[in-house]
Amino acid sequence: MTREKLFEEITEIFRDVFDDDSLVIVDETNADDIEDWDSLEHINLVVAMEKRFNMKFNIKEVGELKNVGEMADLILSKMA
């Protein structure tokens, strides 16, 4: 999967979790940019990504992510 295609899918997940079709997700997007991105929604995002991409994360690796770009890189590394 290309990074561009992955971002399309990640954007879809964000829009679904936050119920907001206007969300625009870029590499630098982090919890400061989305008002409802709290610890619970963070869990829901990770769970949704695990399901969509059929992979498992561990708490440590998702806890170290600083933004969506790093999440995308993590997903791509697991797909490789």
């Binding site: 869990i43 990770v46 769970v47 695990e50 498992k56 994360f57 561990n58 708490i59 998702v62």
Partner: peptide, 12 residues
């Protein structure tokens, strides 16, 4: 209640 799904990462 019936368990329909689990998530190992967060133990949900």
């Amino acid at each position: 209640g019936e368990v329909t799904e689990k998530n190992d990462t967060y133990k949900l």
